[in-house]
């Protein structure tokens, strides 16, 4: 993996500090490895759009620049921009764009930044999530100008609509069947003025997330810290979720207390891929509380049927009822 250095110029302390935290979260999940350095030795500058002596001096440098501007400021005419405040996914997106430009043609003449047709750039395909998943993440986190409006994603099997305000997807029954049964390539969500037809049926956000996470987000999404602890706010709707013992156990465990992925795996014996998929779907549906650094004690694996008050009985009951996994 290529290493690139990012230097800050004229950013406020809070912005610089947030960026450093984001770089840690992104570590290993971007197309290149980004580290912080002083502006002199940086490959790329992250520079405030405020006109100061310092920013004006660095603006004349040949280094690629990501210009950071506040929401009350006019968007700068620069190839790479970030509106402050921004989220880790937006930083990841622009850094990947810069890295792609550097790799293609060197640092001197970056391509002009063109607003994406989608909610996020379809070129911002991270190492583990699809463009559809990225765009959905942006939408559910509020990066949509009109939440009451309708967004659409195209697929070879038809259109999939999403209404952020009601957290409902709409599509033909055939498309939902296809989404549940097989891998379907979904394009990023984009605003549309179309209307949902009467023949279409609705599907709740979590159900859709669970269906498509199988091929859209099989590894922990890059905006989540894999070392953190995860806590489920409540049990998800089981409308279309496979009602397997694994999933029921994950829900029971993760609603009880925050746990790291390793702890959950140790107690539930769930595979890493399935756990990540579960966390991704829950996070996208606003069911997951994420804790950066928390001292979490591991529940004794009691678990180990037979050790608890009911342990042996539960094991026997499962066997008797044919519930054993």
């Amino acid at each position: 993996m290529k290493n690139q250095r990012l230097g800050f110029v004229g950013l406020g302390d809070d912005t610089a500090s947030a960026c450093l935290s984001m770089l840690k979260i992104m570590d290993g999940r971007s197309e290149v490895s980004w580290s912080h350095s002083d502006p002199d030795s940086a490959d790329v500058l992250m520079i405030s759009c405020d006109q100061t002596d310092e920013t004006q001096r660095w603006a004349r440098s040949d280094k690629p620049r990501i210009v950071v501007y506040d929401s009350n400021q006019k968007k700068p005419a620069s190839p790479f921009v970030l509106q402050h405040p921004f989220r880790v996914m937006q930083l990841l997106s622009v850094l990947d764009e810069v890295a792609g430009t550097l790799a293609l043609e060197g640092p001197s003449v970056p391509q002009p930044h063109s607003p994406s047709q989608g909610v996020v750039s379809s070129s911002t395909v991270s190492n583990s999530v699809s463009p559809f998943w990225l765009s959905l993440h942006e939408v559910v986190n509020g990066s949509v100008s009109n939440p009451a409006g309708l967004l659409v994603s195209s697929s070879p099997h038809g259109l999939l609509y999403f209404k952020p305000a009601s957290q409902r997807f709409y599509a033909s029954k055939a498309l939902f069947r296809q989404l549940a049964a097989a891998s379907v390539e979904l394009g990023p969500l984009t605003p549309t003025t179309e209307v949902v037809s009467d023949e279409m049926v609705a599907c709740p956000l979590f159900s859709l997330c669970w269906m498509v996470s199988r091929y859209s987000a099989t590894h922990l999404a890059p905006w989540m810290n894999p070392e953190g602890a995860f806590h489920l706010k409540r049990w998800p709707s089981f409308g279309t979720l496979e009602k397997s013992r694994t999933h029921l156990s994950l829900c029971a465990l993760m609603t009880k207390r925050p746990l790291t992925r390793e702890q959950v795996q140790q107690v539930s014996h769930c595979s890493e891929e399935e756990l990540d998929r579960f966390i991704n779907a829950c996070e996208m549906s606003d069911l997951m509380v994420f804790e950066e650094a928390v001292q979490v004690s591991l529940p004794q694996a009691s678990a180990e049927e037979g050790k608890g008050r009911f342990g042996g009985l539960i094991k026997g009951l499962r066997s008797r009822l044919g519930l054993s996994a």
């Binding site: 013992r245 156990s249 465990l253 009951l317």
Partner: peptide
């Protein structure tokens, strides 16, 4: 029943 048993098991972990 299975959903209940999963919760009982987790409660058991807490007790232990």
């Amino acid at each position: 029943v299975e959903a209940l048993l999963c919760q009982i098991e987790v409660n058991e972990m807490g007790m232990m």
